[in-house]
Amino acid sequence: MSDITWEDPFCAEGNNCFRLGTDSDGNAYIAVAGDEDRYLTDSIEALRTLIRDVKAGKADHLL
């Protein structure tokens, strides 16, 4: 597995902070900030879809 490059944490008001990451193999990662050893992974397109749905209010209860 390639090394994960993590972005700066994203913190919404009143919610946990999370981080997004990518690797050179085209995988995307999401983890709670400070606990990057425990993450979910999928394709970059799947992560983009999740983020779009969250921003659209379709899945805000997940965060």
Rank of each mutant, 00 (worst) to 15 (best):
T41S: 02
D37F: 09
D23W: 00
M1Y: 07
G14A: 03
C17D: 06
D3K: 01
N16L: 15
R48A: 10
D25M: 02
A12M: 10
Y29T: 04
L50W: 15
A56M: 12
A56Q: 10
I51A: 09
E13I: 11
S43C: 04
T49F: 04
T49Q: 15
L47R: 10
A31S: 14
D53K: 12
S2V: 05
S24V: 06
D8Y: 09
D35P: 01
H61C: 10
D42T: 04
Y39H: 11
E45M: 14
L47I: 14
T41L: 01
V54K: 03
K55A: 15
M1W: 03
F10D: 08
N15F: 13
D37E: 14
C17Y: 06
K55V: 14
S24W: 00
S43I: 08
E7R: 14
I30G: 01
I44P: 00
K55H: 07
L47T: 02
G21N: 07
D42S: 11
N15I: 07
D53W: 11
F18I: 13
R52A: 13
R19K: 13
A59F: 13
R19D: 07
S2L: 03
V32W: 05
D3R: 06
N27Y: 04
D37H: 14
T41H: 01
A56F: 02
A56G: 05
C17L: 07
L63G: 05
S24F: 01
A31V: 09
G57T: 05
D8Q: 12
I30M: 08
S24P: 02
I4S: 02
K55R: 14
A31I: 04
L47F: 09
V32H: 09
L50D: 09
F10I: 15
K58S: 11
V54D: 08
V32P: 02
C17T: 06
N15E: 13
A59R: 14
A46Y: 10
T5K: 07
A46D: 15
T22E: 03
E36G: 03
D37L: 07
L40G: 04
I51T: 07
G57A: 07
R38Q: 13
W6V: 05
R38M: 07
M1D: 15
L20K: 03
C11H: 08
G34C: 09
D3V: 02
K58E: 12
W6H: 06
L63T: 10
E7A: 14
R48D: 11
L47A: 07
D23Y: 00
A33I: 05
S24Y: 00
A46Q: 15
D60S: 15
L47H: 04
L20Q: 02
N16R: 13
A56Y: 00
D60T: 14
I30H: 01
E7M: 13
P9D: 06
K55G: 13
D8E: 15
A28R: 04
A56T: 03
S2R: 02
C11P: 00
E45Y: 05
G14F: 05
S43F: 01
D37Y: 12
A31D: 05
L63Y: 03
D35Q: 10
F18A: 11
L40H: 08
D8V: 06
S2N: 12
D35K: 11
D25S: 09
G57M: 11
F10S: 10
L50C: 11
D35I: 04
L63I: 15
D35T: 06
A59L: 10
W6M: 09
G57S: 10
F10W: 02
I4H: 01
N15W: 12
F10V: 15
D37V: 06
G26N: 01
I44C: 04
S24R: 03
L20P: 03
D53H: 11
